[in-house]
Amino acid sequence: MKATRWSIPLAIFVILMAFLYIGLNRDPREVPSPLLDKPAPAFVLSQLHDPASKLTNADLKGKVWLLNVWASWCVSCRVEHPLLMQLAASNIVPVYGLDYKDKPDAGRAWLAQNGNPYTLSAVDLDGRVGIDYGVYGVPETFLIDKQGIVRYKQIGPLTVESLQQKILPLVRELQK
């Protein structure tokens, strides 16, 4: 009976510590996307550089592609931009841009100044496509497979680690 006097509080303490320790390593800003392994929401949007033409995800069926949500007003987009330029130069996977809630003029100027890594960019003026994709923090990047299924979602800027450890291996696997 004497052992329970301290063993119960100790057990509670250990459990509490375990929970707090797990909580310490989780990012509360990273909301798991319900879109994973589901078809990418359909969109038909004007192209940034040719507003008369449309870009729709139906056109991209049959290839693996990245959808990168960006904007000229987005500060962290500048962080991932060099990586996107490298990725575009490597020709491993096409990157399509979604210019989110941006003035098309500002978007075009931003790309002219910093370089354009996108095969094509579409303009989401009112952010409605962004809502369909569950975008809440630009930049976000979606990996979409040949069947049009979302396979990965990166919230926040791309990093060398996220590209090398998660996105590129997945791309290679999906391209098979």
């Binding site: 909301v31 798991p32 996307s33 319900p34 569950g134 809440y136």
Partner: peptide
Amino acid sequence: LVARYGDF
């Protein structure tokens, strides 16, 4: 909204 952003 849940379909887009999850139960969160």
